[in-house]
Structure formats: C-alpha cells, structure tokens
C-alpha cells in the first residue's frame, strides 16, 4: 500500500492544482507533458542505465508525426497519440540498434548526433514541416468525440493528466515485471547479466524503444495541446533539461521523475518570470546543492530527514 500512496497523493495534488490555479493551466499542462518525457528518460537512464542526452529525438519525431497525422489524415487525439508513440519507438529502434553496441560517452555523443540530424532534417524539409516557422494548422477533434479542446486549456489539462497517469501506471507495471528487474540487473552489472544468460543487447534495445515510444507520446501530446510543432522539440536543451530534471528528482524511481520536473519547472517559472537573465544563478545553485548534499536526488530527502529526527549514530551514516 505504501508504494501506491505517493502516486495517489500526486494524482490528487494534480487534480487540486486544476482548481487552485485556473489561470495557469497552460503552464501546468506543460509540466504534465514534460513529466511524460522525463518518465521516458527515467526508464532509459534510471532503470536501464543507458546514458542519453538525445531523448528530444523521439519527442520531436512524435510531435511532428502526430501533427502531420492530424493535418493530413485524421484529427482524432488518441489515434494521434498512437501515431506519435509508433514514430518515436521506430526512431528509437533504428538508432538503438546502433547505439546499444557502444557504451559511456560514445552513447551520449551518438544520442546527441541523432537528435541533431533530425533537427536539421526538420529544418530543411520546409515544405513538410514548416521549417523554422513550425508546423501550424493542427486542428484536433474532441477527445473520444466528447470533450472539445477549449481556449483556456481545461480539456487539455485533463487529457494530459490522464495520459500521465496511464504512462505512469504502465511504467510501474513494466519496471516491476521480470523485464524491469532484468534492466536493473543490466544497470548494475551488464557482465553478470550476460553471464547468467540474459540477452543484454536486445533488452537494452527493447528498453530504448519503449522509452522512445513514451517520449513520442509526450511529443504528440505537446503537439495536440499547443496545436503547434516547432524545431524546439528536437533541441539539445530539451534533452539536457530532461536529464537535469530527472537527476534532480532522483533516477531509478518514477516518483523522482515527477518531483524533479515539478521542482525544476516551478523554479524556472518563477525565477525566469522575475528575472529572465539571472535565473541561471538559481537553477545552477539548486543543481549544485542537490549534487553535493542530496546525491540520490530530492526523493532521498525525506529518508535523510527521518533518520536525523530519529537521531542516534545512524544519522551520520545517512
């Protein structure tokens, strides 16, 4: 039961935020979309241990696929999400077949290179993608034929929240399955997993592909709700920020991804609104404090505090 408590509380908080901040729904929805993206990074990096700085490759692909699908084929949101997921997974599978043969810094560089190439292709294929102007003219049909997307973003918020919950529950099940446990094993020691007969390479490719599909869903969600796809979807800064948010919250735990996104984006929202030039001071200091004092991320804070409250010699060893 305790395992389910935190996600349920987070879901209730998300419902409460809808009523508490009815004028900030655009920002809150962006947080939800980013949570989906960072959850995908958590699967790839936190569970499977694949260092990636290029998750934007799948996010952008999902966004363009869903946007083009809505314009040229069918404006149904759920069908668009499926298209985005398939597109993201396809890119991840194709690049993953190469990427998973390498390790460490090389993987990081290759993920960056894949995203950079897709960014440039989207930039050059102006006729199809609108290039630097972005893909415009996306008109979505009502969700399930019932709920129109409204100007204030109410439908968008609930729609994104449901997607977040579905992805979260799906990942909870996946990471507890034998496949998820296998990924943890690979994360800790690929050699031992290979020695006990696990197909390490194919497990990693599968994890990367699933992660790509989820990142594609995040991109599709963003395209449908903002009704715009821009080159930013492929930007290196998106991948880098997703990584920062995840490590801030804590890797290898789904809760960590949610908390990291909420914290980073809230701080960014207020610090950048007050002083757009100096917000890097705030985020830089925050990042350093977390790395030096909470190396396991923000999610380790309650545990550390509890141990200190209980006192005793254990407190020092925390």
């Amino acid at each position: 039961m305790r395992d389910h408590l935190v996600p349920i509380v987070m879901g209730l908080v998300a419902v409460g935020l809808f009523f508490a901040f009815p004028y900030d729904l655009a920002f809150l929805t962006r947080v939800l979309v980013t949570i989906v993206l960072v959850l995908s990074v958590d699967l790839v990096l936190g569970y499977a241990g694949i260092p990636t700085l290029g998750q934007a490759a799948m996010f952008g692909t999902g966004a363009y696929a869903a946007g083009l699908f809505a314009i040229h084929v069918w404006g149904d949101p759920l069908a668009g999400l499926v298209v985005g997921a398939v597109a993201g997974a396809a890119i991840a599978l194709v690049s993953g077949l190469v990427l998973m043969r390498t390790r460490g810094l090389t993987v990081i560089m290759l993920t960056i290179a894949v995203a950079a190439i897709l960014h440039e292709i989207a930039n050059r294929a102006r006729d199809l993608t609108g290039g630097a102007d972005g893909l415009r003219g996306i008109r979505m049909q009502p969700v399930l034929g019932l709920w129109e997307f409204d100007f204030i973003g109410r439908t968008g918020y609930w729609y994104a929240l449901v997607v977040v919950i579905v992805v979260y529950v799906g990942l909870s099940i996946l990471t507890r399955s034998s496949f998820g446990l296998g990924l943890r094993g690979i994360h800790d020691s690929p050699e031992r997993m290979r020695a006990i007969g696990a197909p390490v390479y194919w497990r990693l490719v599968t994890a990367y592909t699933i992660g790509g599909g989820i990142a594609g869903i995040a991109g599709a969600l963003n395209a449908q709700i903002t009704q715009l796809v821009s080159l930013e979807g492929f930007a290196f800064s998106l991948s880098a920020e997703a990584l920062i948010m995840l490590i801030l919250g804590g890797t290898g735990r789904l809760v960590g991804a949610v908390i990291g996104v909420a914290l980073f984006m809230t701080v960014h929202h207020f610090a950048a609104a007050n002083d757009p030039f100096n917000w890097l001071f705030v985020i830089g200091a925050m990042v350093l404090v977390v790395v030096f004092f909470l190396p396991q991320g923000i999610i380790s804070l309650p545990g550390i505090l509890l141990r200190h409250l209980r006192g005793g010699r254990d407190a020092d060893r925390a």
């Binding site: 990584l243 001071f281 790395v291 190396p295």
Partner: peptide
C-alpha cells in the same frame, strides 16, 4: 562522484559561469 552526478554538477557550474 558517479558519471551522472559529474554531468549534473558541471552543468550546474556552467550555468553559474554563464550567469
């Protein structure tokens, strides 16, 4: 530190330099 912590720490430092 581990690799990820190094990435995060040095990115944080970079932000402070830029600012």
């Amino acid at each position: 530190m581990g690799e990820l912590q190094q990435v995060l720490a040095t990115i944080g430092l970079t932000f402070l330099f830029i600012a």
